[in-house]
């Protein structure tokens, strides 16, 4: 089911890291290649919480899990089992990796419903079952490419590792971080340390520039050779559009509802243009969460576009879904 594997030509750097060559999407007229899979397979195990601190409206957890911390690359995520071994909440909660170091990784959790609230309530010393690192990391740009990072809400946390890595490789990094209000801004300090220019926006004007991230992004995108974005889907759609309109390739880390996080359930799909130019329902957990911004059909998310591979076989699609898994 891996739709895009192997279709991407890679360049090996002396460091052993792999970057995408500066070739536009092969023959499809698209700017970005499908993101290549991660090098390291995920592992499952108990991680010990070693730190918990409130960061504005969120909770930052630090967990001891050397296997995951060493293998993780920016853009990847972990999936937590929530509520303990006898929990009635069976599905994993996917959370982006915000930072790694010294055998530990950190995440920024926004407490929403019961599962994420349980996670946010973990205390140092607690153990939690975690699977990771999951998903495809952000591909790195060719040397010298100036990068623009765009984070919305807690999505900014997923860009911190990337910002540091890009800077350490000599890239110019600019960043725009936005949220509804000051309390929901995230990773402002970490990103301001690696990015210049660095712009903060809030919808209500409680911090930084009033308005959405798209304002500053429109101003900064022409100076960028690549855009990286993580945040709510409407933001990703708008940022990808701005980049594509100016011929700048973009990488977006999407957030779709996930049941397993490891690629076996097919709940997390969205319509994506593959390497061959055909659109498919791609799994955001294993084919993503990082996709080339101009390959994601944002306007069609939540629908069944008739040109999707296999949509023609869904002839009974309007009968109610029946037993388990019926057409």
């Amino acid at each position: 089911m891996s739709q895009d594997d192997g279709a991407t030509r890679m360049v090996s750097l002396p460091t052993g890291e792999r970057v995408l060559p500066p070739v536009p999407g092969s023959g499809t007229g698209l700017l970005g290649q499908p993101a290549p899979p991660a090098e390291h397979p995920p592992v499952q195990g108990l991680a010990v919480v070693v730190g918990s601190r409130p960061v504005s409206a969120y909770t930052e957890l630090t967990l001891e899990a050397p296997d995951i911390a060493e293998a993780a690359r920016p853009g990847q995520f972990v999936a937590f089992a929530v509520g303990g071994p006898t929990s009635a909440m069976l599905l994993r909660r996917s959370i982006a990796i915000a930072g790694v170091g010294g055998g530990r990784f950190s995440v920024v959790v926004s407490a929403k419903a019961a599962g994420s609230t349980w996670l946010a309530g973990l205390r140092p010393g607690d153990e939690v079952d975690v699977v990771g690192p999951l998903g495809r990391p952000f591909p790195l740009p060719p040397p010298g490419t100036p990068a623009l990072l765009v984070g919305g809400g807690y999505g900014a946390a997923a860009l911190v590792g990337l910002g540091g890595l890009l800077r350490s490789r000599g890239h110019e990094v600019a960043a725009v971080v936005g949220a509804g209000d000051e309390d929901r801004l995230c990773s402002v300090e970490d990103l301001s340390a690696v990015a210049a220019p660095f712009v903060v926006t809030t919808d209500d004007g409680s911090a930084g520039r009033a308005g959405r991230v798209t304002g500053p992004v429109a101003e900064l995108v022409s100076g960028a050779g690549v855009v990286y974005a993580c945040g709510p889907m409407p933001m990703l759609a708008a940022v990808a559009q701005l980049a594509t309109d100016r011929g700048v390739p973009s990488w977006v880390a999407v957030e779709e509802s996930m049941a397993c996080g490891v690629g076996v359930c097919m709940t997390c799909v969205l319509p994506v243009v593959g390497a061959d130019g055909r659109s498919r329902f791609a799994r955001s957990c294993t084919d993503g969460p990082v996709f080339a911004g101009d390959r994601v059909r944002f306007a069609d998310v939540g629908t069944l576009p008739p040109d999707l591979l296999g949509a023609d076989a869904m002839t009974l699609a309007h009968t109610p879904a029946g037993e388990g898994e019926t057409p």
Binding site: A88, M89, L90, L91, G115, E256, S257, A259, C265, M266, T267, V269, L270, R280, F281, V301, G302, T303, L304, L308, L309, G310, A311, A313, M314, A317, A321, G324, E325, T326, P327
Partner: peptide, 23 residues
């Protein structure tokens, strides 16, 4: 088969409901 449009699942007490559409 493409399978159905999302959302395809909801968590329920000690379980879930799904409608993947045999992707």
């Amino acid at each position: 088969r493409s399978g159905r449009a999302t959302p395809r699942m909801a968590e329920t007490p000690s379980g879930m409901i799904n409608s993947i559409g045999l992707q």
